[in-house]
Design a protein around this nucleic acid. Structure first.
Lengths: 345, 345
DNA sequence: TGTTAGCACTCATTCGGGTGGAGTGCTAAT
DNA sequence: ATTAGCACTCCACCCGAATGAGTGCTAACA
């Protein structure tokens, strides 16, 4: 059996209708809905075929059909028109850019959630490789040294170090010089034992301080944890009856609270259709690879702050989410985000 | 009519039973439950009185009684035994103190939620007054200056400033000296125009830089927003049928997502019974002053990191939450937290 | 006078049967 | 190949009866 033109049209009609109503759709509805002018009986036959092909399924005999994951997949891959999104200019709402990128991202999540009525998440930008650009150790008072590290992506990290005995000013100056000359531009991998040994030798009287500093640098460079994820509108999922039974809702909401679960999301493989411009991906059900999301779909996009620095945006909703609108909205948003980040650099 | 001994006992029995079952409790149940050996009829009479006094209410005729807010209040104020909490040593779980206070607090929230089956929130420590202890401006590269500010509570803030033209090393040294001598120890209120004017005069060629720095300092000192609130176990509320209908649940969960709502919580007045040791407060229903919490109760405690630096811990659950256990758990936790923070200083 | 047994009454919940409607699959006619 | 018609299935809903927990009241009792 083949998926001919007509079957496609019917499948599309089924999915469209189901997206709207959230209820199983029957042959009569489709028979009226389409421009095919077919009787419900014919539709029934076709539906029977579509079911056999795995694109739709019946919750129980004598109920209408609902799209299967395979059906959604086909729909997303081949049937979305890239129609203009009717979303208003998000930019206005983002315009008061406080300069802090995390505020912007949190706001993006919020705006997106408000606009789509789905749950959203936005990951902070990830830097592909981090190098030390600048290190500075300063004495704050007799008991505290402050270590400031600037990475080549202009991210600044700092940490206090407690010291037992005061360190002379001169030593600090020397230390700074040494640190900057030896470590500058180095990746964490390149800070091998030889380099470290060399440093320690020079300051054998302050090994504890050096140790602390190296530890901080290490942490800073490999820190995976501090990858922020901003979320918004998690409770939107309660709006969709098929997700709002207690067990399912708790599972999904937990995921949004315990954002850690989404960390692996950042590494999800590309799946099916890739939107030319903004890397928009759709994951349906199990494709998300997250058990808690198995009843959801997720649309993601990637934004770039600058070359090699990117983050992701995700929208989570029921499988019957309005893919068309979401993709449109994301496209529009991404363009605007690009602009905003461009302005910044 | 007076609240005599017997009425109290009956009220207590009603509340205890209701806390367990979550369902209206009838006269017969109480008649069996108590050691009073009274018939259900007598209990009924007493209940009728208690209702008239406002301590309990009937959801509808011919249902049992449930405690009113006033009833809970009385219960919490006078009937809690300070029995030892059976909670295991939380400290073990917190022991791997990563040194970062926010990690510790997030963990506290998590442990607490797991132990109580309620939703928890923990506010980051708040500093009563902030003064500048140390400022440093450094040139990171030709286009960027880095401003590092250390407050007297050892909180470090930093921000980059873009500059159009390079600033000579000498100027920076001078600038640092000036900033530290003029601003050191000052509160934001004390940085009046005179001080600012003086600074600007000295560096009239770099007013833009000075402006940026002052702006950053200002923001740092009055920053209210960066008061972090950590939450955990929000979805626990779905476990309680009386809270898990869609509208209510969404409202409460929203509050936990949009943590901002809890900001005013930090300023809630003391209410009723104050636990001697750890400032444990119970807010019932509207007492929380948050509309979204009107069907919940909230137990809060205050922890102190050091003199004048404190934060709050809150537990949110249904009104029929197990106050006894929660207060016990909090007490135990607070002692352990105190120790942990003591170690740190 | 406080306590209790008994009784009539209320009201939420539950359960089963009946009904309507939506939908299907099959068959026969076009 | 399409369609009309029909029998059949099954969910959803409504209704009414039964259930049962609980109350308030009254009258009797110690």
């Amino acid at each position: 059996m083949e998926l001919d033109e007509r079957k496609l049209k019917i499948l599309q009609a089924i999915i469209r209708t189901y997206l709207e109503t959230g209820e199983p759709v029957g042959s009569r509805t489709i028979s009226k809905y389409t421009d095919l002018n077919l009787s419900s009986a014919t539709i029934r036959n076709e539906m029977s075929d579509l079911e056999e092909l795995g694109y739709i399924l019946q919750p129980h005999t004598s109920a209408g059909r609902i799209p299967s994951d395979k059906g959604y997949r086909l729909y997303v891959d081949t049937m979305l028109d890239a129609k203009d999104s009717e979303i208003q200019n998000l930019r206005d709402e983002l315009e008061e850019k406080t300069g802090k990128i995390d505020d912007v991202l949190q706001k993006v999540a919020r705006v997106l959630a408000a606009n789509t009525n789905y749950a959203t998440l936005v990951s902070g930008p990830r830097y592909q490789s981090k190098h030390v650009k600048f290190i500075q150790v300063t004495e704050v008072d007799e008991k505290n040294l402050l270590v400031v590290i600037v990475l080549d992506n202009n991210v600044v990290k700092n940490q206090m170090i407690r010291i037992d005995e005061p360190v002379e000013q001169e030593t600090i100056v020397k230390l700074n010089f040494m640190l900057n000359t030896t470590l500058n531009g180095l990746d964490v991998l390149e800070m091998n034992l030889a380099v470290i040994q060399k440093l320690k030798e020079q300051f054998d009287s302050h090994t504890r301080v050096i140790d602390s500093i190296l530890e901080i640098i290490g942490k800073t460079l490999i820190d995976e944890d501090d990858l922020e994820i901003y979320t918004s509108g998690a409770t939107n999922i309660l709006k969709y009856p098929e997700l709002s039974d207690k067990a399912k809702a708790a599972q999904i909401l937990d995921a949004f609270e315990e954002k850690r679960i989404f960390h692996n999301w950042l590494g999800l493989p590309e799946k099916g259709r890739t939107d030319e411009s903004h890397d928009i991906q759709v994951y349906i059900g199990d494709e998300t690879n997250m058990d808690s999301m198995k009843d959801c779909s997720m649309v993601t996009a990637t934004y770039r702050v600058q070359e090699g620095v990117y983050g992701k945006i995700g929208i989570v909703g029921p499988k019957r989410m309005d893919y068309d609108k979401v993709v449109g909205t994301l496209n529009s948003l991404m363009s605007q985000l690009d602009d905003i980040f461009k302005d910044k650099n």
